[in-house]
């Protein structure tokens, strides 16, 4: 009898943690929606949803790439710098038209991703150090290319930033399409499965003959490309290139979204739906506090609480 009761208590706790870890982020989003509906005036308006979604779209896009990197037991601190770089390069090459400018942006981003990937996969530098170098250097380069804020008057860029299809802004559509695409890659492709295996046990993946280096390099390139997309979209929305502040602290927002969304930092698992929900959760939380005129410092404290809660729920995973 006594033994039976002893055994059920920790089991229940484990089950609660398990539930929190899987569904906690969605429950959080739902709770914030309900609370705001009650306490925030005009919360349930199409306009408000649109604003929130447009604001969160770049975070989601960056977080998708971050989720892949974290799935390999890595991290990419250079995503904010890549956004800034994308803004600078867009401003420099917009004169040749939007498409050529985007191509050059992609080249720059791919170069950053290759450098990150090569440092991690070939040289064996720890991801946090390798990408730290480009976090600092990337923004430096962005500022060398374009030292100050520059207004951009380009109709195609403007329509990318504020246009819509059937009332849905391009930003949201692009983020949604990319999320579905990345989720598909993770679930249904050889690449996705190899990525997870490498993140879970690199020695085993190596001995199983997986192309470990190639997969790692591609992951960092994809992450940089996604950050560049976010940088271009944010620039388009601002209709200005702002390499000084664009993407500042974005790496932290993205990591937060990924972790809160139930993707463990220890690798081997990538939760894309959770990552999107994680970004939305942080966005709603911030918006709620701002709408109720609480100072920005409160937002940071609230974020910290969410992160601690997420880490608590993830406790016990990875380290077995």
């Amino acid at each position: 009898m006594a033994e039976a009761t002893l055994r059920t208590v920790p089991l229940d706790k484990a089950r609660v943690l398990q539930w929190l870890q899987t569904y906690g982020v969605y429950a959080g989003v739902a709770a914030l929606l309900v609370v705001n509906t009650v306490i925030t005036p005009h919360f349930l308006s199409a306009e408000n949803f649109r604003t929130q979604a447009v604001q969160v779209a770049p975070v989601i896009i960056v977080a998708l790439g971050m989720a892949l990197v974290i799935g390999t037991e890595g991290v990419d601190l250079s995503v904010g710098a890549v956004m800034a770089l994308a803004a600078s390069v867009t401003a420099l090459y917009l004169g040749y038209g939007l498409l050529p400018a985007l191509l050059v942006v992609a080249l720059f981003a791919a170069a950053v991703g290759l450098a990150n990937g090569a440092l991690v996969a070939l040289v064996g530098v720890q991801p946090i150090v390798a990408t730290l170098a480009l976090m600092v250097g990337g923004r430096g380069l962005a500022l060398v290319l374009l030292p100050q804020l520059e207004d951009l008057r380009n109709p195609s860029l403007a329509s990318l930033g504020s246009g819509d299809v059937l009332g849905i802004p391009y930003l949201i559509l692009i983020a949604a399409v990319l999320a579905v695409l990345v989720a598909f890659v993770v679930r249904r492709t050889t690449f996705g499965r190899q990525l997870l295996a490498i993140g879970d046990s690199r020695p085993a993946a190596q001995l199983a003959g997986l192309p470990v280096r190639r997969v790692l390099i591609i992951v960092y390139v994809v992450c940089a490309l996604l950050a560049a997309v976010a940088g271009v979209l944010a620039t388009a929305r601002l209709q200005a290139s702002d390499p000084t502040s664009l993407g500042n602290l974005m790496e932290l927002s993205a990591i937060t979204a990924v972790v809160v969304g139930g993707t463990p930092l220890t690798g081997g698992r990538v939760n894309i739906a959770g990552t999107v929900a994680g970004a939305v959760l942080i966005q709603l939380l911030t918006a709620t506090l701002i709408k109720h005129d609480l100072p920005p410092s409160w937002t940071q404290i609230a974020q910290a609480i969410v992160i601690v809660a997420a880490v608590y729920a993830a406790r016990g995973r990875g380290k077995r």
């Binding site: 046990s201 001995l207 003959g209």
Partner: peptide, 28 residues
């Protein structure tokens, strides 16, 4: 530590090495 990929399923572990042969254009 060198054999199994503990967090993945039995299915994924069995298919791990042979996966490229069971895929077309990278799609499993």
């Amino acid at each position: 530590s060198e054999g199994i990929v503990p967090g993945l399923s039995v299915r994924e572990n069995i298919a791990l090495a042979v996966l490229p042969r069971l895929s077309r254009f990278g799609l499993v």
